[in-house]
Design a protein around this nucleic acid. Structure first.
Lengths: 162, 162
DNA sequence: GTTAATTTACTCGGATATCTAATGTCCGAGTCTAATCGG
DNA sequence: CCGATTAGACTCGGACATTAGATATCCGAGTAAATTAAC
């Protein structure tokens, strides 16, 4: 039960794309350089974000990734779902139906598994909290801790490419 | 990001142990038969519950597992932590410190990573919800849906062993 | 008949395979730029 | 000089290894019961 590091990478890259502010696409190589990540693997991680409609990609020279919508319209839940997929973390295998209970009529199991219900309700709380956090809010908190971050990012990336 | 099936197995077995009600230990084989699970693997899954103080184990003939405390004192959080370990699902790798920011003084990173903070707060909601659910409450819900469940379990297990 | 010693059957616990999924790497199709060529 | 063409460089996207973790299996140390033997 460990969330893929791709989630962290994706969230950081979204913030970075917004800070850079240029409407132009940013290549994987430049994004990866920002956080010292392996470029090819970062590319692989960002692909599902494109399919999820969070980013748009452009091929060819001067190509790269762009935000498909403002950060205010992207939640942490969106990023997580894009990377990890839509399935819930707790997957009830309905083991109660097997073994000794195998011969019971199906009607006995009309009522949902109590353990599944409890686990799902807890997980729902988590997803609700994730959905309540937009990337814009996260970014605002980051800038609150480190004022002038946007300017710094833009200056760093304005330097001639290495 | 998928929770091990051992969590489901463990929770079911705890409820089962309580329903059986005998103060005597129940062997892995009998527990496994209840839900059609592979006995050896179930044994492996229950071991961390012993270390976590949820179950107690007895070796030798007539040995097996027993509940170490009443279901009211065991939460879903306890079961999850026992199986999955104490680590959080989201592990911040602090990638913000690498790449372009590698040369920044450490003082810049005194403030926590905003993404990490947001993810942790959401995960905390989840764990809070899990900790609020005792196995006793889950069991009560199960019996509410299927009255007489405890009696049925005891009758099934009172049958001569196969 | 009672008690002590021994055998026996059964238990958990951990060491050992197998398999799935996450991680990491690589190359090709496509595209935009820019240089080249022709008018 | 201007426009069309062509070559080139760079991009993402997905196919292909590698590694870590979950899943599954097996055997041994240890224990308690049951049997046996001695008194």
């Amino acid at each position: 039960m460990r969330i893929s590091e791709g989630v962290e990478w994706a969230a950081h890259c979204c913030l970075l794309l917004d800070w850079m502010g240029t409407g132009e696409p940013v290549s994987t190589a430049r994004l990866a350089a920002g956080y010292g990540l392996p470029a090819a693997y970062l590319n692989k991680q960002l692909q599902p974000l494109v399919k999820a409609g969070i980013l748009t990609s452009t091929a060819g020279k001067k190509g790269g990734f762009r935000l498909a919508k403002p950060l205010a319209d992207i939640t942490l839940m969106d990023v997580l779902t894009a990377i990890e997929g839509p399935d819930e973390a707790f997957q009830c295998a309905e083991i109660r139906r097997h073994g000794v209970w195998a011969d019971e009529p199906a009607s006995v199991f009309r009522a949902p598994c109590a353990i599944d219900t409890a686990m799902r309700s807890a997980e729902l709380e988590w997803r609700r909290a994730l959905a309540a956090q937009t990337l814009a809010a996260v970014q605002a908190n980051a800038e609150l801790q480190a004022p002038g971050l946007r300017t710094q990012v833009q200056e760093w990336y304005a330097r001639p490419r290495q």
